[in-house]
Amino acid sequence: MSEEKVKSKDELVPIFFMGKCYEVPSSLTIQKALEYAGYQLVRGCGCRGGICGACGTVFRYPDSYKIEVGLACQTVVQPNMYIAQLPFFPGNKATYNIADLEPNGSVFTALYPELYKCIGCGTCTRSCPMDIDVLGYMSKAIRGDIEGVAKGSFDCVMCGLCSGRCPAEEVQFYIAILARRLYALHMQPRSAHLKRAINSAEEGQWTEGIAKLKAMNLDTLKKVYSEREMEPHMGPEDWIPGDTNYVNVD
């Protein structure tokens, strides 16, 4: 990127969207800039908060050969950037019933045999807007390490940019979510206190209390709510309220 002098907040900068030039305020994200330019985003626009992965975007600066990536809702426009969005990537998605799968190391290659085509070029890692070591978790998938793939891909937003640039036509993001599903179902330690809480709820621990609350009129309910005992801001970690009728103290 060329060295631009610092722009004032409302200064207009040129960007190129699908080859056409638009003047947009320099402080906008790519997503807001497109809307400013008159585009109505129906697809390729989800949470607007950098989590859903719907707005995967590729762009390039005019004095560089490098293709850059980002989420449109998180990337602020730069002067003269060339932009194209990738709202959906038609990657090969295996059909499976997760409950029928065995959590063993060959599950990845059974469902995605093209995994072995990986040549280790690392373009996937270079294409990840979430800074995930995609090649790292793909390597773990090749050696059957479900936990490694699940943890290594935890931040994946399923934008598909990795797959879009892969010379071996891998579907990294689908392999990653398969690993996280398997890990969650078969390998992640179960929470013991959750099980106890569900049991005690089923045994009627809250029945009486809830019935009492339900019987209150709105004003009483509001009063009870606003006068409830609150956890102090700097309270100790093991703080519990005096009235434990509505709190599971485990």
Binding site: I119, G120, C121, L135, S139
Partner: peptide
């Protein structure tokens, strides 16, 4: 990552050397 398992016979194509 995988080392490639086999050293590339055609080294003009450098992709086998990258990993």
């Amino acid at each position: 990552t995988c080392c490639g398992a086999e050293y590339p016979l055609i080294t003009e194509k450098i992709h086998g050397l990258i990993p």
